[in-house]
Simulated scan of single mutants.
Amino acid sequence: MNKQFDMEIFLAGVLTGAHATRERHIRQAKTIQAAISERWSRESPWTWQRKHLAWFFDHHLSKHSKASRYYYWLTGLLVISRLKKPWSLPEP
């Protein structure tokens, strides 16, 4: 039996700011996780590659507003920071 990956625990070390902001980042990170999991069957961010995040931002968010893409971009930066990867995401 597989235990579901807990995104809240994963991001706990890099989350700062107001409670509402932390909750938004967690909610958006779970959305990113669900989309990548559905597309590539990769549950844990530890198994993601840069192409997975790039796909999410280029294709999955393509019809979202510029403001939504910006807030997801901020969450993406937190995920990358937590993974300690040298990746970058193009600004929205």
Rank of each mutant, 00 (worst) to 15 (best):
E8V: 01
E8T: 06
E8N: 01
E8A: 14
I9Y: 11
I9M: 12
F10H: 07
F10R: 00
F10S: 03
F10P: 01
L11M: 13
G13P: 02
L15F: 01
T16F: 07
G17R: 02
A18M: 04
A18W: 01
H19K: 15
A20K: 13
T21L: 14
T21V: 10
E23L: 11
E23C: 12
R27F: 13
R27W: 12
R27C: 10
Q28D: 12
K30N: 13
T31F: 02
Q33M: 11
A35P: 12
A35H: 06
E38L: 08
R39E: 13
W40E: 03
W40K: 07
S41K: 11
S41A: 11
R42V: 04
R42N: 02
R42S: 01
R42C: 01
R42G: 00
E43F: 02
S44Y: 06
S44T: 15
P45I: 00
T47S: 15
T47Q: 14
W48Y: 07
W48D: 00
W48M: 00
H52P: 04
H52S: 03
L53F: 07
L53N: 02
A54N: 02
W55Y: 14
W55P: 02
F56M: 04
F56L: 07
F57P: 01
D58N: 13
H60L: 05
K63T: 13
K63I: 01
K63S: 15
H64F: 09
S65V: 05
S65R: 09
K66P: 09
A67T: 11
A67V: 09
A67F: 02
S68A: 15
Y70V: 06
Y70N: 10
Y71F: 10
Y71L: 09
Y72M: 04
W73H: 15
W73L: 06
T75M: 01
T75A: 04
L77I: 07
L77S: 12
L78G: 00
V79D: 04
I80R: 11
S81A: 05
S81E: 14
L83G: 12
L83C: 12
L83S: 11
L83A: 07
L83M: 10
K85L: 12
K85S: 05
W87M: 03
W87I: 00
S88C: 14
P90E: 15
P90D: 09
P90L: 06
P90I: 04
P90F: 04
P90M: 06
E91L: 13
